[in-house]
Design a protein around this nucleic acid. Structure first.
Lengths: 201, 201
DNA sequence: CTCTGGATAGAGCGTTCGTTCTAGTTGATG
DNA sequence: CATCAACTAGAACGAACGCTCTATCCAGAG
């Protein structure tokens, strides 16, 4: 048995080939969806070759998509946790996060929405692995909100329900903002979510 | 100049070829997205041929997608208006609608979500026509909710903002429900939206 | 009847898709 | 130095893609 010594000693200069591939897949599928993104395009964007892609992901496009979803999951997980940790009041934290999301979406010229929605929706009935990964992402984000609400003294029942609506509304508002090319849906959603949270304490 | 006599005299038996094509395109793109749906597949599903598709839609796939979005727009517009007309109180109407959406989504085995989201998201940066059609759909739905809220005595400012959040939250909850294969997000969203509406009167 | 133009029908174009396969390169180990 | 596994490289395959093209069908006008 081999002891795997860290191969990413080059550190921040140029990431792992595998990492570059996952990042490229995640960002391309976020914009173009599963079917709209080709393996060759991913390889090119990642500065890798087809051989490398199939070396690291022998399961092909589906396995790569699952890895991309997990990557996007963790990406937003970190953003969400940072936002919740930064403010003491969950309501204010959510409002601030919505504003951040709106600014980020606008800065990308309304292209970079939720990192997993597009990929997940386009494969709804046919790729259970991808669906499961997306469902897990939603559950993890919801858990983060749930814990924050509980920590602020909210009842278990209210925290459970509100965590659902916070994620749903942020997701829908980001979608509406992207389609309408306007920050308004997200900013309004932030305001209303804060009121809804304040209402349950 | 010719006077166009109605060609759909067969009435409900078999719809127009053009109508069949649009319906097939709408339902297939709703499930599989823009890139995941082939023109030949649409033709087959519509019981039409490739020649007919390009006869009615010389603009090709993009023009067909725009027609499909408009079809889905009108589809949900009717559902939404019916729901709002059926109840006097807008809050109760929205709650009931969320329940209806959850049941419908479950009945389709979590496949038939929002009729325009998948198509719109998958073409985010590259097809302005499709984006515009989707944005128009969101605006029309929002307008319907706005008018209902105004009619129930709400201020213009509150009605405008709440209409945004109602559409955003329903959209996001449907998305979350589809991914999680659970009615919970939609049912909870219906409850919370009712509270939010009640809060602003 | 002929004529006409909207509608239907599908073979076939060039391209790109996901995937497979073989060959070459690299770097640590014995 | 030789060896071997990990990794890189890209040509090639069959299938499917969007779309073009010509041929045919057929109801109504003259």
């Amino acid at each position: 048995m081999l002891i795997r010594v860290s191969t990413k000693t080059k550190s921040a200069a140029t990431p792992d080939t595998r990492t570059r591939i996952v990042r490229a897949a995640s960002s391309l599928m976020q914009r173009q969806g599963y079917d709209g993104t080709g393996i060759k395009q991913i390889a090119q964007e990642a500065q890798a070759t087809l051989g490398s892609v199939y070396h690291f992901f022998p399961g092909g496009k589906q396995e790569l998509a699952v890895a991309a979803i997990h990557h996007g999951d963790q990406e937003f997980f970190d953003v969400l946790r940072a936002a919740l940790d930064h403010e003491d009041d969950p309501a204010q934290a959510i409002t601030a996060l919505c504003r951040t999301l709106a600014d980020g979406l606008c800065a990308s010229d309304w292209i970079d929405g939720c990192p997993i929605t597009t990929t997940s929706l386009g494969t709804a009935g046919r790729a259970p692995d991808i669906q499961a990964a997306a469902a897990e992402a939603f559950a993890r984000w919801r858990g983060l909100v749930h814990d924050k609400l509980r920590a602020s003294g909210m009842s278990e029942r209210d925290a459970h329900d509100l965590a659902h609506t916070v994620i749903s509304t942020m997701e829908g508002a980001e979608l509406a903002a992207q389609v309408s090319r306007s920050k308004e849906p997200l900013n309004i959603a932030g305001k209303h979510l804060a009121r809804l949270i304040a209402l349950h304490r």
